[in-house]
Simulated assay, not measured.
Amino acid sequence: MLRTLREEHALVRARMGVVAVAAALAMAACMPASTGDGERVDDRPSPTPTSTATPAPAPAVDTTAPASAEAVGTASAAVRDLTVKGRAPKTGYSREQFGDGWVDVDRNGCDTRNDMLRLRLTDRVMSGECKVLEGSLADPFTDSTVRFVRGGASEVDVDHLVALSDAWQKGAATWDFAKRVAFANDPLNLEPVDAGANRAKGDSDAATWLPPHQGYRCEYVARQAAVKAKYDVWITAAELDAMLRVLDQCPGHELPGPGDQPVIADNVGRAPDAEPTPRASPSRATTGEDALDPDLGTCKAAKAEGYGPYVRGVDPEYDYYRDGDGDGEVCE
């Protein structure tokens, strides 16, 4: 019996020792730890509490969009990277230096002007796959709806956002002909717009003309910057200031990508020094070799009498009428 009691006392003491060790370990866990160099963690400034929630995974990068279609930085940064120089003389400039009218540069079977009209116009009336006869335009220059009627009183022009003569005076005079044709037919540099606003613009740069619709000005200047960067066209100091003033109103506005069209055109059409191919005008009067059709004032009136079309450089009557679409043919 005595032996049994002693054994029980020993077991109790052993159990108490285990409890003491556990308590000691618990106290040690609560005491400040050493950093290993004598500095205690609790002597350091307390870190700012942070959420214990599991952070969301980083969004996946979309690699499906072609790089040429994406923005490539900010427009203001691109403007600052452009070369700044004075304007060169306009000597030698003509529209023909950029190709004979609108060229099917991408060889899709349609000329560039019709490509742009098909892209931007709604409620279109077509002749075949390419030729746009009528349509409505949401004009970015004036923020209004404009009606296009081919061969009549059209109120739509396809504008070169960077005017051809402006480019000529800022580098294009020294380019190869194929580069000028590419420039004149690049969708990045083209926009169907209200004809009146386009003619008010003329060959102005951003220092002397901006679209009346202020909500479009950032995009307008960004597109000009993208075109000038792609083709290495310089800007003047006044132009630099004007472009940055616009872009200050829209910090972070993205620069459009350069697009898919190369800067050297594969299809250049007819070179400016090529002789026009003679052809008999279907409207030429037959009463004499040199007889001309009458000037009826408008193409609408001429067509009503069975006259037209007239081709630039071939038919003298071409000069009677306004070539609103700039395709080298009137009263078509």
Rank of each mutant, 00 (worst) to 15 (best):
S76E: 15
V314Q: 14
T50S: 10
D241V: 15
F141L: 05
D37L: 10
R180V: 04
K179A: 03
D104K: 12
P55D: 01
A280Q: 04
T50E: 07
G128K: 12
G38P: 00
A153E: 10
E70A: 11
R113S: 06
W175N: 00
S68W: 15
E254Y: 10
T236F: 14
R279A: 13
T287A: 12
A200I: 09
E129M: 09
G202F: 06
P272G: 10
S127R: 11
P272A: 12
G128Q: 13
D157M: 10
Y216W: 07
P272K: 13
D232E: 11
T236C: 12
A60E: 11
N108V: 03
A197M: 12
G128H: 10
G326T: 05
E134S: 07
Q169A: 13
D139C: 09
V61Y: 12
D115A: 08
I264K: 10
E305P: 03
E275Q: 13
A10V: 07
L119D: 12
N185R: 03
L5E: 01
A56Q: 06
E8R: 06
L240Q: 15
A20H: 06
P140Q: 04
Q214D: 11
L11F: 01
V263P: 02
T286L: 13
H160R: 03
N198F: 06
R322L: 07
P47Y: 01
G215S: 14
D143I: 05
L240P: 06
T35R: 11
A182Y: 06
D323W: 02
L240W: 08
G36E: 14
V61D: 05
P32C: 05
A206C: 12
A291S: 13
T122D: 09
E317W: 08
P262F: 11
D111F: 09
S127E: 12
D186V: 08
F183C: 02
A58C: 12
S127C: 05
M126I: 03
G73E: 04
K85D: 05
A67L: 14
A10F: 01
N267D: 10
R87Q: 06
A71C: 14
A226K: 07
G151L: 01
A237I: 07
G99S: 04
V263T: 15
R147T: 15
D241N: 15
L247K: 03
G202A: 05
I264D: 07
A301P: 11
R199K: 14
Y307Q: 05
Q97R: 15
A65K: 10
G215E: 13
H9V: 02
N185T: 07
R270F: 02
D166Q: 10
A60M: 11
G36R: 14
V72A: 11
V162D: 05
L25A: 08
L161I: 14
A23S: 12
D100G: 02
Q214Y: 04
A222R: 00
D319T: 15
R180Y: 02
D319P: 11
F148C: 06
E96F: 10
A271L: 12
E305I: 01
